[in-house]
Amino acid sequence: MELLETTRQALLLLFSADAELWGIVGVSLSVSLIAMAVALPVGVGMGYLLASVEFPGRRPLIVLIQGLLASPTVVVGLLLYLLLSRQGAFGQLQLLFTQTAMIVGQVLIALPVLIAFSLSALQSADPRARETALALGASGPRVAWTMLVEVRFALMAAVCSAFGRVVSEVGCSLMVGGNIAGVTRNIPTAIALETSKGEFAQGVALGIVLLVVALGVNSAFAFFQGGAQR
């Protein structure tokens, strides 16, 4: 019965334009979208370089990045906390417990996903695509752009996967954001901490939003993967 009552309250919250609730959703989306906007060009660019340029240390670097795919977000948060805390190397920037710190953390979490996925997408592309672009007189940047367009479905899948990971991670946001109401409180940290204070309705309401976002992103992921296989 308690669960039903909680769900009823949660739905009421969702549809009553509760400012606090939608504020939390807004923090989550803006932090994760900005993080993706920063990480996307860097990650895809590094994926392209790893796929197309031979240099010493390339293999170990690829292995390292693939290993980082499994890095626990709370450990990323811990490292970032140490760097940003007052005694840390970047303590003077006073970024700890700000949205900027959360964005930096999510960029670090998204990068391995974007690099590894775009690398594998480009490695599985038809080698004739690159040769054809070269033979038709394309310069370096145009060849790169052509290759990315050729593997666009796989790249979109990489973007969905990375976004799904950053929007739902709790460890790093909690460590470097601090769950400050109205500032750095996003969906995962709110669920994790508010629930422990007995605020079940808000937790369930936020959980529903996160589920819808995750479901949407994963449907898009499946759609783009299907496109890549066509």
Binding site: D126, R128, A135, G137, A138
Partner: peptide, 29 residues
């Protein structure tokens, strides 16, 4: 590269459109 053209035995067409494929080298120039 602007004077010499190589065509594969089984040509690769970009996953865009027929017209975009034909226009590719002109855009590159």
């Amino acid at each position: 590269r602007h004077e010499v053209i190589y065509v594969h035995q089984q040509p690769y067409l970009f996953h865009t459109g027929v017209l975009d494929n034909i226009a590719y080298g002109l855009r590159a120039r």
